[in-house]
Each structure stands twice: as structure tokens, then as C-alpha cells.
Amino acid sequence: MRWALGARTALKRVPLDMLTACFDRRSGMTHLLAAPAPELLAALAAGPADIALLLARMGIADADAEERAGLEAHLAALEAAGLVVRA
């Protein structure tokens, strides 16, 4: 499964505390993102990627199956929010 940022997604980020407020200029929607969502979006900025490549971009060497499944779930949630698409 490969993921990519939605075309012309244009995020403006303001870190608050544990959450980051994000405004997507394309949709006009505001998202409040908790880790690892901002990190995933940043990792996708370099182009479409699968989980393995995303982990590499984020500098995470040792993720087990459960953690990878968690990341897939986060990406699915970002997809529902309109921020990422399947590539």
C-alpha cells in the first residue's frame, strides 16, 4: 500500500502543545493533529511512499508489526480527513 499527500494539499501548521493546529488551504478545513500525524505528513512531502519507506524517512529503524499497523491506521484516518490519498 503506497500513500501520497493529496494533490495541492497545502498545510499551514501552528504547534500548540501536544497537538498541532493545521489549516489546509485547499479544503479550507482545520485539523488538530497529534503525533505521529504531523511526522507522517512531513515524511510524505518527499513523494509517495509505503510504510517501509516512510519509516526510513522518519529515521525509525525498528518498528514491529503492531506499530506498522498503527501507522496504517493513522494514514487511513488522514485519508478520511482528505489529507492523503492512496497512490
Partner: peptide, 21 residues
């Protein structure tokens, strides 16, 4: 905390969504 303030104020605003960026 700021994130809680943010959430509560969006709920307390009638026109936040309409104002965009």
C-alpha cells in the same frame, strides 16, 4: 492548555469555519 483553548473556542465560535484561513 492552548490546544484545549483552541478546541473550546472553535466550539464557542459561530463563524470560525466560514472564515477560512
Amino acid at each position: 492548555a492552548p490546544s484545549e483553548v483552541f478546541v473550546r473556542l472553535t466550539q464557542a465560535s459561530t463563524n470560525y469555519v466560514a472564515l477560512g484561513e
